[in-house]
Design a protein around this nucleic acid. Structure first.
Lengths: 386, 386
DNA sequence: TTATTAACTCAAATGACTTGAGTTATCAAG
DNA sequence: CTTGATAACTCAAGTCATTTGAGTTAATAA
């Protein structure tokens, strides 16, 4: 499977300008909730008239709805516009070796339908058929016209391609040499965004928090890092950026991989569990204040602290967000136990954001993140290929 | 000093489209060396006529020159255009606590004049006056019209602002709370790009290598990391991304900071030198195969190997480039001694680029890099504020 | 020698934005 | 309560940069 770095810089003409301006206007409205035309025009450096035309278009396309008027001081009150949740939908998909998760997400970012199926195998044909069936089911249930589906965001386990960290358990058997992107686009007949779990979850967090320079630590089976720089995902040359699990940290037992200290699998191992411990089981143990789990959390906090120092000094983010398939209270507890590193460029007074915070938690974090890859394109100029 | 993340997304109109297309056309020509109009049009997705108009403009502005014709197969031979080196210049500046380096660089990236002065102190007024004097000197010597100066790229020692790693020796005394950007723009009456040494050097390397996803390890007094993602610098929220020197690596003497193992200061310490060892001294020692230096190199190669694993797994670059104020032969030797990590996403067969390579070396690397921050803006659409 | 091909030019058409005049509704001041 | 200032918005004309389509030119292939 090939992921080209694609530096495709393209020229601009009137039509592409309009497209770009439409997206910029939508982006403004989304991040503010609702807005008037004159304000959008000021923010984008366009004339009121231009924005009026654009808004009229968007409204005709069903992407916007009027939302009353608002007056601030003198002058004619501004007619407010908001995103029409039903104006468009994104298909979010997470594929794991053992299961597939899907969701239909509206323009407000709310899931209107979700599905979860266990997988018998990872053969492309089986998987694609499953995916098509789930899409059809969800579309029927929600009554969404499939013309309103803007695209599919698909999370598949990294690393992409055959690399030095392949075959360590999490990747999809038999997919290393496939062009998954083309395969999915062909099957779904939709624009597709491929990504790993951490990047997808990070993108979704960008939308909800409004941050545009941050790092996202995603707890899946292992541990992944999603990086957002200037609002853009840092995917790396082959889409494999963020493989933080293999980074070494110091422990009482000498240097170990971060993933072996801080992940669901690490918990499993620490608890000497024979079968997989999932998020529900972890939540139960945490609510019981299970001594072994609490012990693990202390060691985990130490590893996390080292990871923070690393991320902060390499990336200087506004904030580091924890999320993924872990119970929120556990991550909350983990943050309170974690020492924020002193020797760090993020150790400064004038950052208005917390250095460490909790984001979206739960099983569907990556699936919703996948959908947000598509939503993001609708709201960001020049993001067609990211 | 405040560096805003500046997510300013702006709308597009006819004039801004033209500006963007001009830059895109220049970028095409630069990366290809020379090109015909029809080819540019195809690459940018514009009509031939549009590109013809743009090229005529650029030629009238003195940014392009005709460079003969080229025929490939049938059809009218294409008139080729190339960048006119004298069409514009950038001022490159590196400020260190003890010295200032400046250069005037033409559109081909060649330095037409350079200066180096030691600094008595770091007071803003003294520094600015020195800078103005050097600029005047260089402009006079080269006969460059100061209207042709497109801007100034200025490298100042990080970290920016008062952080947890400030006051460790390298930063400019008394500058933490100044708005350096405004200060320089006011004094020079030019657009200014501020950056740390590693980022500037990385940008310059992007231009010479054509890579757009890579990491650059910059050997200054310490060690810095410059990251380029999708052709864009990863600066971090406060401009302090890439502080890799403080990252911990394993050594025979337990965990140590990377900078203590792999930097000019580390050499100094290892050699038990009382006075600073500069690049010339290091080159001499290396040519003598000085046993202590060679011993240091072995330990350094080990530290470098760990740094590579880290960078590769976090950023998945096309390549990692070594450069800066070190003798090229020493870095060459270092690369041959460095084990490329196995457990890395970069350990793959299908990457056409070497995982580790040497870039620009020498005292002026950061200064020329600073200038390239300005040159880059001229050749990249939407890069006005990076 | 001739047909084909591709780069390029000219002039008209198109698309999207800007400009400027005019309308409307709110707030503030008298 | 009236009046004036203000700001959002609309309409119509103007501007800018691009596209389109009909030539023109020069090289190569047949």
């Amino acid at each position: 499977m090939i992921m080209t770095p694609a530096p495709l810089i393209s020229g601009t003409n009137a039509e592409r300008s309009r497209m770009s301006n439409r997206q910029a206007a939508l982006g403004q409205i989304r991040s503010a909730g609702q807005m008037g035309r004159a304000e959008i025009a000021r923010n984008l450096g366009l004339s009121t008239q231009a924005v009026s035309n654009i808004i009229a278009d968007l409204q005709a396309d069903g992407l916007l709805v009027e939302a009353g008027t608002r007056s601030q001081g003198r002058g004619l009150p501004a007619v407010q516009y908001g995103i029409n949740a039903e104006g468009g939908y994104a298909l979010g998909v997470e594929i794991r070796p053992d299961a597939i998760f899907t969701a239909i997400v509206d323009l407000h970012g709310n899931a209107t339908a979700t599905r979860r199926r266990t997988l018998k195998n990872n053969e492309p044909e089986y998987l694609i058929n499953m995916l098509l069936k789930l899409r059809a089911e969800m579309l029927e249930k929600t009554g969404v016209d499939d013309k309103r589906l803007m695209g599919a965001g698909i999370v598949i386990p990294g690393p992409f391609g055959q690399t030095g960290v392949s075959g360590l358990g999490s990747d999809l058997a038999g997919w290393q040499h496939l062009d998954a992107h083309a395969l999915f686009e062909e099957a779904l007949q939709l624009p597709v965004e491929l990504s790993n779990d951490a990047n997808a979850a990070a993108m979704s967090e960008q939308i909800t928090t409004g941050l545009n320079n941050f790092a996202y630590l995603y707890f899946g089976a292992g541990l992944g890092l999603g990086l957002i720089n200037q609002g853009q995902l840092v995917k790396g040359a082959f889409g494999n950026a963020g493989e933080i699990g293999h980074v070494q940290v110091m422990t009482a037992n000498g240097p170990q991989s971060l993933e072996s200290q801080l992940s669901r699998v690490a918990i499993q191992k620490h608890m000497n569990a024979n079968n997989t411990i999932d998020i529900t089981a972890i939540e139960y143990l945490f609510n019981q204040s299970d001594p072994k789990l609490m012990q693990w959390l202390d060691a985990g906090a130490d590893a996390l602290s080292q990871a923070l120092a690393l991320i902060e000094n390499l990336f200087d983010p506004q904030s580091i967000i924890l999320g993924g398939a872990m119970p929120a209270p556990l991550l909350e507890y983990l943050t309170t136990r974690t020492v924020l590193p002193t020797l760090s460029v993020s150790n400064r007074e004038d950052n208005p954001h917390p250095r460490l915070q909790i984001g979206t938690c739960g099983r569907m974090a990556a699936t919703l993140g996948a959908a947000s890859l598509i939503l993001n394109r609708a709201f960001t100029p020049n993001a067609t290929s990211l």
